[in-house]
Design a protein around this nucleic acid. Structure first.
Lengths: 147, 147
DNA sequence: GCACACTTGTTGCCATACAAACGATTTTCA
DNA sequence: TGAAAATCGTTTGTATGGCAACAAGTGTGC
C-alpha cells in the first residue's frame, strides 16, 4: 500500500477528475486529432495508420491488418471500406484461403502516403511541441510501456 | 521550421507507426477503457467524468458542463441523455434563461458516484501500474502539459 | 425599439471502437 | 476420417466525438 497517500485505509477518497489519467489522455488525444485533421484533411488518423502499415509490410489479410494496427475486426472493416471507397486501398480474395480478404495499397494510396509522410512526422512533433526534446523522449518511453 | 513544407531538406523520412505519439496514445487509451469497463460496467468513462464534475460543482447548464468536461455540445447532449435515461442525472429548465437546461445529479447518481469513487481511483492506478511511483508522477506532469 | 451578433440546445452526418452473433471456411485432433 | 474448435469476414447495436446547420432565446449598439 505504498505510494498512494490519500487512499488505502478509510480516508474519504477525494476524486479530482482533472488528475485522472483517463481524462488527461482523452484531452491530449483530442488536441492531437485536431492538429492532424488540420494538417492532413484527406484521411483520418486511423486511416493513415493503415496506410502506413500497408506501406511497411505490403499486402496482408484484413484481420491481420486490424491486429497490427490495434483495431477490432469490425473497426478495421469500416476503415478498409472507407479507404477502398477513396481508392487508396484495394481488396482481393485469397485463392489459398477463401475466408481471407487481402488488402493492398493502390498506387494512389502509396502516393498519398509518401506525399504526407513528412507532414505526419511534423504533426507528431507539433503534438509534443510543449515539451523539450529530452522530455519528449521520456514521455514516449513511459507511454510505450503503458500500451 | 515553421509550417509544413513537405520536407525540410531531401531526407528519406522513415515513418515508424509504432513510434508516433498518436498511435501510442490510442493504444494506451484502449487499454485504459478496457480496465475501466471491466471494473465499472454501469457507466462509461465519459459518463463517469460527468458524474464526477457534477459532484464537484453542483448543478450547471448542459453547455457549461460540456466545456468543463472537454465535450462538444453535441457530445455532452448524448451523454446527458443517456445518464438521464439511467436515472443518474436530471434536467430542468432555467427560469432566468429559457435556452438553458440545468443538469443535476440525482440521489442515485450521487450514490453511484460515491460508491464507485474508490474503484475509479484504483482504475487510474491500474492503468499506471507498469510504472513506478516516480515515473507515474513524471508521466502525469508531462501529459498534463500536452492537454 | 430594433436589427444584429452571440449563446444554447438540437439534429443529422460521418468515423472510430467494441461486443455479440452469424455463416463460411479451415484447422485440429481424437 | 469426421466432428469440434478456431479463424475470417460481416452485420448489428451501443457509445463516443467532431463538424455543420438550425431554431429559439438573449444581449448589445445604434
Amino acid at each position: 500500500m505504498e505510494g498512494y497517500p490519500e487512499s488505502t485505509m478509510d480516508k474519504p477518497h477525494r476524486y479530482s477528475l482533472d488528475e485522472q489519467i483517463g481524462y488527461v489522455l482523452r484531452r491530449v488525444t483530442q488536441r492531437h486529432l485536431s492538429i492532424f485533421s488540420e494538417a492532413i484533411p484527406e484521411v483520418t488518423t486511423t486511416q493513415f495508420a493503415v496506410l502506413a502499415r500497408l506501406a511497411e509490410t505490403g499486402p496482408v489479410s484484413q484481420n491481420h491488418l486490424g491486429r497490427s494496427t490495434a483495431m477490432d475486426a469490425a473497426t478495421i472493416k469500416g476503415v478498409v471500406d472507407r479507404l477502398a471507397k477513396l481508392g487508396l486501398v484495394g481488396t482481393a480474395a485469397d485463392p489459398d484461403d477463401r475466408r481471407r480478404l487481402t488488402v493492398t495499397l493502390t498506387a494512389e494510396g502509396a502516393e498519398l502516403f509518401e506525399a504526407r509522410k513528412a507532414t505526419a512526422l511534423a504533426i507528431s512533433r507539433d503534438t509534443l511541441a510543449p515539451l523539450d526534446p529530452a522530455e519528449r523522449s521520456v514521455l514516449m518511453a513511459l507511454l510505450t510501456r503503458l500500451a
